[in-house]
Design a protein around this nucleic acid. Sequence first.
DNA 1: TCGACTGTCCGTAAGGTTAAACATAACCCG
DNA 2: CGGGTTATGTTTAACCTTACGGACAGTCGA
Lengths: 346, 346
Amino acid sequence: MTGTKKHTVKSIAQMLNVSTATVSNAFNRPDQLSRELRQRILAECERLGYSGPNPAARSLRTGATGVVGVMLADKLAYNFTDSCALEFLQGVSQVLDDAQVNMLLMPGRREFYREKSLEAIPERYILYGPPRDMGILERIERQRKPIVSVDFSLPNHLALNVDNYGGAKAAAQHIFATTDGPVYVMGLRLTKTPMMKRIDEEELRSPDLSISRQRLEAYLDAGREAGRPIRTEHIWSSNESTWYEGIQAAREALNSVPRPAALLCMSDQLALAALSVARELEIDVPGQLKIVGFDDTPEARRNHPQISTVYQPSVEKGRLAAMMVLNPERYESRVLPTTLHIRETS
Amino acid sequence: MTGTKKHTVKSIAQMLNVSTATVSNAFNRPDQLSRELRQRILAECERLGYSGPNPAARSLRTGATGVVGVMLADKLAYNFTDSCALEFLQGVSQVLDDAQVNMLLMPGRREFYREKSLEAIPERYILYGPPRDMGILERIERQRKPIVSVDFSLPNHLALNVDNYGGAKAAAQHIFATTDGPVYVMGLRLTKTPMMKRIDEEELRSPDLSISRQRLEAYLDAGREAGRPIRTEHIWSSNESTWYEGIQAAREALNSVPRPAALLCMSDQLALAALSVARELEIDVPGQLKIVGFDDTPEARRNHPQISTVYQPSVEKGRLAAMMVLNPERYESRVLPTTLHIRETS
DNA sequence: TCGACTGTCCGTAAGGTTAAACATAACCCG
DNA sequence: CGGGTTATGTTTAACCTTACGGACAGTCGA
């Protein structure tokens, strides 16, 4: 009910008997006016509760929105539970904050966009993992804005990857070197159809560049090189890296015959779940069963026993992705290193 | 280098020989034109890669941005590591997604805002915890936009709280009933100066409505009612609910004499840290030491042993906060219930 | 002393959209 | 048939900002 009229550059300008351009400059180009006038204007704005030029009008005029879209593979809620994604986002937000740029989190499934599409807002995109719904990708590419893809590659765009193959291979080699019995794989999203728990021969032969497949290839290669190839029926897959799905898959794997001597897990989340099931079945880790994870999330380190895992620089990955998308011309596609950390579960 | 001219309502309109208003209506008011014309326009837009009216121009014209600001107490990075905050955000994003509204995460410290302030963008605010820098609050209130405060209250605005006192009291009563020795408190942000590990008498007497203090009062009252008042020097405080700080405080507490028989922790994070230190010192939980947490985060449930804790509906809190801020006139301030979950650490 | 330069400030013209008011034709009902 | 409704479009006027080209006075170098 308070008739507090909205302030604009114009109203401020009138009040001070200067031009609107000058008020604008006071905010945006300090060098365009004398220090004292600028101070006077800013003080008046403060007094009147005018907190700077209207962002909508500005971005209409300049054509820039100051927003970077971070498209996550799936729906948002899921990523809020995945600490690997969280560390990545943390890295991104550090850099974006410094650059005074906003981060718009976007789900990677078209169902979440109705008609009033948001795609128009961001000026640049970070794609964290291949979007579930690849149709969205096409629409984004059509906008011809800077794109950085993370954990996968896109022709003609900057890509930021991690040495999944190297890390997974190191982990697998370590396991094969310290184990005699059968080695099982706890995979992530290996099958095309969400409900499948096992990958089949045919699917195994079809090409796929996802990080899961890179890791799987490394596991398989290590097995072959050790003269103990991993059998297809020993590869389990859970569709999401959630606690519940992990528990289910681990329960099936650990109850099967012959019982595995080691579990190569494609995420720490899965390793944690496997560990929990092992405790439930009274299987001693690492005595009877060795477990190695992937990602090196904080939970892996904090757990008892501490989980052996492959470190990947998630925060740094986020920081770098943000820097790359802000200055695409200054960067080239990169692959970040991974390192095996042997701890208490192997 | 492709001369792909930018499309606008105007260019589309020209191309189809209709007015700009009609194109606009095709997107915003389906009832204002015939179904066929609308289809024709939409198809043409799809063909040309025009993904709808420019959001900046729209919001300049309508005065609405479709953005809800979620102001977090501190810097953003911190919240990405606190699973209680994460669950809250998850709840918020569920509702906001459905309402086609965007969520802008904002840090609660002024240092993060330079001149090109973002405060002007959001049309409504959710304040998650009292902002570190209260000056920011004043500036937001001046804008006279809907505000919902969560976990604290603000005169003349909707507030959403949780029964901290009740939950903490139940936890403390349970501990006093099952323990004989000294009961220590592991607090959160109890002291004004960040570096202090112990609260002093004077500070204890100064009023404070933060959730930490509500919980503390409950602990103290329970102690008094049990005839075993908690001594001031048995109250520890860590400034952030991080793993590292928790470990430090727990180490000091568990090494002090007399050794506590129970720890009332103000967060699960702290309880987890305490548990880890207990293991390090070979103190049996719950045999020699009982521990109870707060929040009931997923980690509390997954841990071995599972942590006894006070459940608060974090996701629901987020959902409700979002609904309240979208329809302030339909809601009143509320206090959500908490429940004690006794598990394996007490 | 003159021309060139510098430091300040101003006027104007977009920029893409939509609400409101207006226009037109088709339709309906007694 | 006449008056009023409905369905469908159009015209116009903001919304608030900033880039750009000028304008004007004072300063500097030769």
